[in-house]
Simulated scan of single mutants.
Amino acid sequence: MSEDLKTIKELADELGVSKSYVDKIIRILKLHTKLDKVGNKYVISKKQEKSIITRIEEAKNLLFELRLVTIVCHCNISLDYVCILPNYTQVLQLNYIRSLL
């Protein structure tokens, strides 16, 4: 495949997700009618790839926030004692959640 084009499978493998999950994101973003076909495979342009990756990252961030809110609410613990912050992104998410409470 060209450097500018990837198959759905190639992108899924690169992101560590299933091909069906990438296909689902493509449909959510309404890109499925805009994909080109090379041979018998649909290919994703760099611009489409960026949109797909952004959507997947947003979904991961939302899932993290929901899990953290669930832990804090159900365990009745102070956010000051939540020690599951392995990176800066999660610190920012924690600060956002703290502002909601």
Results as ranks from 00 to 15, higher is better:
Met1Lys: 12
Asp4Asn: 13
Thr7Pro: 12
Thr7Phe: 10
Ile8Asp: 00
Lys9Pro: 01
Glu10Cys: 03
Leu11His: 05
Leu11Gln: 03
Ala12Thr: 01
Glu14His: 10
Gly16Asp: 03
Ser18Asp: 09
Val22Cys: 07
Val22Ser: 05
Val22Lys: 02
Val22Arg: 01
Asp23Val: 00
Lys24Phe: 11
Lys24Tyr: 14
Ile25Gly: 06
Ile25Ser: 04
Ile26Glu: 09
Ile26His: 10
Ile28Pro: 02
Leu31Asn: 01
Thr33Pro: 14
Lys34Thr: 11
Leu35Cys: 05
Val38Glu: 06
Gly39Met: 07
Gly39Ala: 12
Asn40Phe: 06
Asn40Val: 06
Asn40Glu: 07
Lys41Val: 01
Val43Leu: 06
Ser45Gly: 06
Lys46Tyr: 10
Gln48His: 13
Gln48Ile: 01
Glu49Lys: 12
Glu49Gly: 04
Lys50Trp: 06
Ser51Glu: 15
Ile52Pro: 03
Ile53Leu: 11
Thr54Ile: 15
Arg55Ala: 12
Arg55Tyr: 08
Arg55Leu: 10
Arg55His: 08
Ile56Lys: 10
Glu58Met: 14
Ala59Ser: 15
Lys60Cys: 08
Lys60Pro: 12
Asn61Ile: 12
Phe64Ile: 05
Leu66Ser: 14
Leu68Arg: 03
Leu68Phe: 05
Val72Ser: 01
Cys73Leu: 14
Ile77Asp: 00
Ile77Met: 11
Ile84Pro: 00
Ile84Trp: 06
Pro86Val: 02
